[in-house]
Amino acid sequence: MYDIGKYQEATTVEEALRYLHDDPGSRIIAGGTDILINVREGKDMGVHLVGIQRINPLRKIIVNREGTLSIGPLVTFTELEENELINKYVSYLGQAGGTMGGPQLRNIATIGGNICNGATSADSASMLFCLNARLHLRTKESERTIPIQDFYLGPGKVDLKSGEMLTEILIDRIDYQGFAGKYTKFSQRKALDIATIGCSLMLKIRKNIIEDLRLAYGVAAPTPVRCCNAEQYAVGKMVTLEVAKTIGMKALEDVSPRDSWRGSKAYREQLIQELAQRAVMELLDQGGKKDA
C-alpha cells in the first residue's frame, strides 16, 4: 500500500526540472527502492513524485576526450557491473555495485538514487569517495558541479537544493588511471543486507612502493569517509603485512563508528582495521603490483 499523492512523469531533464520547480515539495523517483520503502512505512505519506525513468540520456556511461568518465544517475547496478567502460577503467566500482541487495534489486536500483538517498551504508558511495567523483546538479535555473565529499552532509542528508536533480557523476582520468581497487562489503548475510562496514580501497604501486592509496569507508561515520591519515601514511611505503596493518590502524584516526544494536563500536573498529589490511594485501597479490 503506497500513499502517493501525485505522480508526474518526465521524458526530458528539462521537463523533470520544471515539475520539480513548479511543485516544490515533490520528490524524484528513480528505481524507487528507497523512496517507496519510506512511503510504505508511512514516512512520506501523500508524497508527490516525479518519475525520471524515461529520460534516456540519464542512463548513459561515456568517456570524453580528456578521459573523464560520465555516469548517468539512472544507470542501474546491473548495467554498471556489465558496462564495458566501467569494466575497463573502474571495474571495482562495478564490483562494489554488485554487492547491492540481490539481482532483482540491482536491475532496478540506480546509482543516482544510492547517492541521493544519503545513507552512509550506500554501497557505491565510499568507492565514489575514493574516485574523487564530482556530481553535476541542475535546477530549472542553475547548475553546479561539486565533489561528492561536499554533497554528504549527515546521516540521510545530502546537499540537494529544492528543485535540484543529479544529472551526472564525473570521474577524472587521474583519479582512476593506474589504480587497482577493491570494495569489501562486510555484512551478516551475503545478499540482501546492509553493510556492517563497507571498505573501499584504491591502490597504485610502482616497484613495490605505494605511489598512491585511497581508502574510504561506509558505516564508519555518519557519512562515508575518506581516511586521510591512513592515506598519507601509506604513500611512499613498501608494501608489507606490517604496513598493511598500520594502514588499518591509521584508518581508525579518521573514522567515528557508532555503538548500535546492529554492531558495537569495538566490533566495527575491528572490521575497519581488518578489512583495510586484507584489501591492501589482496590488491598487492592481484596486480596492484603492475606498474602504472
Binding site: G102, Q188, R189, K190, A191, L192, D193, I194, W261, R262
Partner: peptide
Amino acid sequence: MLYNEKTGAPRNNNLLDYKLPTLMD
C-alpha cells in the same frame, strides 16, 4: 529477535534486520 532494553519495542521486525539466511548464505 531483538528488543530495545529501554522500551521493550522490537528492534528487528523486518527481513532486513531479522537475519534469515538467503540462498547465498
